[in-house]
């Protein structure tokens, strides 16, 4: 005799478990499919040229060598110079870090003002900034070139920082505004009565609340700016090119034998920082996108 209070009969449970396993199997298959190119890249980057020519694309390297990585980093040719990715990598770092920091900070202040210090026309200004998010890069190339020339920033890293800050403000403002708009206005009122001013309230009350959205914005901006190619190739000159442009030059400007292992290593090197940022701050990314409301 089965106890009637003891839950469900066995059949549906077995069915559910089977469904669950089927789901895992399908998801696993998708994951494999997406990871395949990365696997090929890593495997190829660790092979010697002879092995690449001889063996299969998906085979593991018979003899692991980091030679291609060294070449990609410090001696691959990007046109006439043969210094590898290294100088360009540091160009990217020294343009991304200030561009991300400045655009994020400005977005935070903008979002704080638009969400919490309502003023006449705030919605219009917000709509215009939002509109800025949807202007294609190509449209602003020529006007931006003129502007940079006028400002004396042509071909400089500062010029690229400027471009990325301007282009990023729309997005960062959107992120912070949508986050701050969920915070009750009474918080600002209470702080005002407590005697705090505009920036004091921003630093002491709002910034400490902002870690999740700060992470989202930093990841978003860093990925955008680091991976940008069009602005990088348009507004830089020899010596100030970002890593994406250098990668293109390494891959496209080789003469004679195509060094697939070096190309693959260079591509991975160029992609590592964004992977790193996501690995470090990724848990906040999900949290910041889904959360927002502050239960005080």
């Amino acid at each position: 005799m089965t106890d009637p209070a003891r839950g469900l009969p066995a059949a549906p449970r077995a069915g559910q478990a089977a469904l669950r396993w089927l789901l895992f199997a399908i998801l696993g298959l998708f994951a494999l499919f997406y990871l395949m190119p990365l696997f090929v890249m890593i495997a190829t980057s660790l092979k010697s040229l002879e092995e690449i020519r001889a063996g299969s694309l998906v085979a593991l390297p018979a003899r692991v060598t980091f030679e291609a990585w060294g070449t990609a980093w410090s001696s691959a040719c990007t046109g006439i110079q043969c210094e590898g990715l290294r100088p360009y990598f540091w160009n990217s770092v020294s343009l991304s870090v200030p561009a991300v920091a400045i655009s994020t900070l400005l977005g935070a202040v903008n979002g704080y003002v638009i969400a919490q210090w309502r003023f006449r026309g705030a919605n219009l200004i917000f709509s215009l900034m939002l509109f800025g998010c949807f202007i294609p890069f190509q449209v602003v190339l020529l006007p931006m070139a003129r502007t940079l020339g006028f400002m004396g920033l042509t071909g400089s890293i500062s010029g690229l920082v400027f471009v990325h800050v301007i282009y990023g403000i729309g997005f960062t403002t959107l992120f912070f505004r949508n986050y701050y708009v969920t915070i009750p206005v009474e918080l600002v009122k209470a702080a005002k009565v407590d005697g705090a001013g505009f920036f004091r309230i921003f630093w002491s009350v709002f910034m400490p609340l902002s870690l999740p959205i700060l992470m989202v914005t930093v990841i978003w901006q860093f990925t955008q700016i680091w991976n940008d190619f069009l602005f990088g190739v348009s507004f830089s000159q020899a010596g100030t090119q970002p890593v994406t442009v250098a990668l293109n030059n390494i891959v496209n400007s080789t003469t004679g034998v195509k060094e697939y292992n070096v190309d693959m290593a260079a591509a991975i090197i160029a992609a590592l920082p964004t992977l790193f940022v996501y690995a470090v701050a990724g848990k906040y990314f999900i949290r910041g996108l889904t959360a927002g409301s502050v239960k005080g």
Binding site: L187, A190, V205, G296
Partner: peptide
């Protein structure tokens, strides 16, 4: 801040 007042809000408005 210069009115010499203190206020208690409906939602308490505590700094989270």
């Amino acid at each position: 801040k210069d009115r010499n007042i203190a206020m208690v809000f409906q939602s308490y408005a505590l700094y989270p």
